[in-house]
């Protein structure tokens, strides 16, 4: 870069901008960010260090709220339980939602002609509010009136007509499925765009050199998809950690049955707004901060390691 600058005929003056004008352009976004994200974030952080009586702030108690959410009932059991479900939602989304999304993107990329139609169809569900999607699916899966079990019984698969949302072993997977059903279009679009961005000459050249289809995917398509894969993974991670509307619609605020669909956001919601404890602002703020720090930390680590992996791939 610096070499080019020196040898270039004209210095690239047009790329520079007086610092004042630059700041002026940043201010609106910065103001919105400060008011709607930074301010609530820092207040929640400060709330988590105090004792509370309703909305009346008590004394500074340091990390006591944090100790509480790790040691005191119901948090000592609910927190690991809810957290493990968030991780499961992430793993489930990575395995099903994103791999099927990738497969769909590849297929649609190949067929070309009706691509738009299918893209629209697969993307439609995520235009619907996830709460509505959750309620619709809980109706569909109802053991009494749900069309899913009715159909299973009609076609002779009655033994598979389970109480999907009532059995802890199936309920959390039902949420993985419903989430995937809604979001499948999202990885598909991102992967589709990335696929469209791969120059055809590269693939053609490899084909002429005699590379098989699977080899072409492994050595050309996949590495070039890596940036998209990284983006999808990080967004999936954040989405799974903050999952709220679908679990809320399917299992209610307690994560029915018996906490089998409890997730961190539900635990936060219960603690903040449904608890009989007068100090709930402190404990719920502590929960929110922990969740934020975890998501933020992992997202940063993921982003850095992906960037490193990408550099490594392209350098070779």
């Amino acid at each position: 870069m610096s070499m080019k600058m020196k040898t270039g005929n004209k210095p690239r003056q047009h790329g520079k901008m007086p610092i004042l004008i630059g700041t002026a352009f940043v201010i609106p976004a910065l103001a919105l960010f400060s008011v709607f994200i930074l301010y609530p974030l820092t207040t929640a952080l400060s709330y988590s260090f105090f004792s509370w009586k309703g909305t009346l702030r008590g004394e500074f108690i340091g990390l006591e709220n944090y100790v509480t959410v790790f040691t005191r009932a119901p948090f000592d059991e609910a927190l690991p339980n809810a957290f493990s479900h968030n991780l499961l939602l992430f793993a489930g989304a990575m395995v099903f939602q994103n791999s099927i999304g990738l497969a769909l993107a590849v297929v649609l990329h190949k067929i070309g002609r009706v691509k738009r139609l299918f893209q629209t169809m697969f993307t439609l569900p995520y235009l619907v509010s996830p709460l509505v999607v959750g309620y619709l699916w809980s109706l569909m899966l109802s053991p009494l009136f749900g069309p899913v079990n009715a159909t299973l019984k009609k076609i002779g698969l009655g033994e598979f007509a389970l109480p999907w949302l009532g059995d802890p072993t199936t309920a959390i997977w039902a949420i993985v499925f419903i989430t995937a059903w809604q979001w499948i279009g999202f990885p598909m679009l991102l992967y589709g765009a990335a696929l469209g961005g791969i120059p055809e000459e590269v693939t053609e050249a490899a084909e002429i050199d005699g590379a098989s289809g699977s080899k072409r995917f492994r050595l050309i398509t996949f590495p070039l998809l890596l940036p998209a894969l990284g983006t999808v993974s990080i967004l999936t991670f954040i989405g799974a950690m903050e999952s709220f509307p679908i679990p809320y619609a399917v299992g209610g605020s307690t994560g029915a049955p018996a906490g089998a669909t409890d997730v961190m956001a539900l635990l936060f919601y219960r603690t903040a707004f449904e608890s009989g404890d007068v100090g709930s602002i402190g404990t719920s703020s502590a929960l929110a901060m922990l969740l934020f720090l975890f998501i933020f930390g992992v997202a940063v680590v993921l982003r850095t390691s992906l960037a490193r992996a990408e550099r490594k791939l392209y350098d070779e």
């Binding site: 974030l41 954040i238 903040a272 929110a288 998501i295």
Partner: peptide, 15 residues
Amino acid sequence: LGLIGVAALVLTGCA
């Protein structure tokens, strides 16, 4: 307090 919960959700592209 409500906002922090919401902000957490809004921040994501997925949910």
